[in-house]
Amino acid sequence: MTTSKSKPVFEYRPRRSRLGSWITAAVFFLTFAALSFSLSATTEGGGVMTPADHFAMWGLGVLGALAFLVFSRPRIRVFDHGIEVRNLGSAQVFPWEVVTGLSFPKGVPWATLELADDDEVSLMALQPTDKERALEATRTLRARIDAHRN
């Protein structure tokens, strides 16, 4: 079941966690870039900082920033044939036949998609930090689930 050719009926991505991951990635990169400029040419032990060392600091900043940007990946897409859940890793598509519900109890970091085989899938995109926006997305998802169950 591919989702690349069909258009989603509903799509949701968190705002606050994406913003936080982008800001953290930028700060991380800029910190390593600043450190590369602040390192002196020679160390107390007699070691020499070369341009390659400075570029390596930039490279570490890029790698660290990319690691933080992984947290901007979570997304939920609803299609006529099912729901696509993308957390930090790859996306999974669940047909409506296996989706039984959506739970979002107080105090949890994200919602959970309940499946027919008593399995659960975390919906990292649906977080309480987005407040009213997340609540509206929860209502929309529950309505879609109920529509396909009946």
Rank of each mutant, 00 (worst) to 15 (best):
residue 1 M to W: 08
residue 2 T to V: 07
residue 3 T to V: 10
residue 3 T to Q: 07
residue 5 K to G: 06
residue 5 K to Y: 10
residue 6 S to G: 01
residue 7 K to W: 03
residue 11 E to M: 11
residue 14 P to S: 15
residue 15 R to I: 11
residue 16 R to S: 10
residue 16 R to K: 13
residue 20 G to A: 07
residue 21 S to D: 05
residue 22 W to Y: 15
residue 23 I to A: 14
residue 24 T to V: 07
residue 26 A to G: 12
residue 26 A to S: 14
residue 26 A to P: 02
residue 29 F to P: 02
residue 30 L to T: 10
residue 30 L to V: 12
residue 30 L to I: 11
residue 33 A to D: 05
residue 35 L to Q: 09
residue 36 S to L: 02
residue 37 F to K: 11
residue 39 L to F: 10
residue 40 S to T: 12
residue 41 A to R: 11
residue 44 E to H: 09
residue 44 E to I: 08
residue 44 E to W: 06
residue 46 G to W: 05
residue 48 V to T: 14
residue 49 M to W: 12
residue 50 T to I: 06
residue 52 A to E: 14
residue 54 H to S: 13
residue 54 H to W: 03
residue 54 H to Y: 06
residue 55 F to E: 12
residue 57 M to E: 01
residue 62 V to L: 15
residue 63 L to R: 01
residue 64 G to H: 04
residue 64 G to P: 06
residue 65 A to L: 05
residue 66 L to Q: 06
residue 73 R to C: 06
residue 74 P to D: 04
residue 75 R to C: 13
residue 77 R to C: 10
residue 78 V to M: 08
residue 79 F to D: 06
residue 81 H to R: 12
residue 81 H to E: 15
residue 81 H to P: 00
residue 82 G to D: 08
residue 82 G to H: 07
residue 84 E to T: 01
residue 86 R to G: 09
residue 86 R to H: 01
residue 86 R to F: 03
residue 87 N to D: 04
residue 87 N to Q: 04
residue 88 L to G: 14
residue 89 G to W: 10
residue 92 Q to W: 04
residue 93 V to I: 11
residue 93 V to T: 11
residue 93 V to D: 10
residue 95 P to T: 09
residue 97 E to K: 13
residue 98 V to H: 04
residue 99 V to Y: 01
residue 99 V to D: 06
residue 101 G to K: 02
residue 101 G to V: 04
residue 101 G to L: 07
residue 101 G to E: 09
residue 104 F to W: 10
residue 105 P to A: 09
residue 105 P to F: 06
residue 109 P to I: 00
residue 112 T to G: 02
residue 114 E to C: 04
residue 115 L to C: 10
residue 115 L to H: 11
residue 116 A to R: 15
residue 119 D to R: 14
residue 121 V to K: 10
residue 123 L to D: 08
residue 125 A to E: 03
residue 125 A to F: 07
residue 126 L to V: 06
residue 126 L to Y: 03
residue 129 T to Q: 14
residue 129 T to P: 00
residue 130 D to N: 03
residue 131 K to N: 13
residue 132 E to Y: 01
residue 134 A to M: 10
residue 134 A to Y: 06
residue 137 A to P: 05
residue 137 A to S: 04
residue 139 R to E: 15
residue 140 T to N: 08
residue 140 T to Q: 14
residue 141 L to T: 04
residue 142 R to E: 11
residue 142 R to D: 07
residue 143 A to C: 01
residue 145 I to V: 08
residue 146 D to F: 01
residue 147 A to S: 13
residue 149 R to V: 00
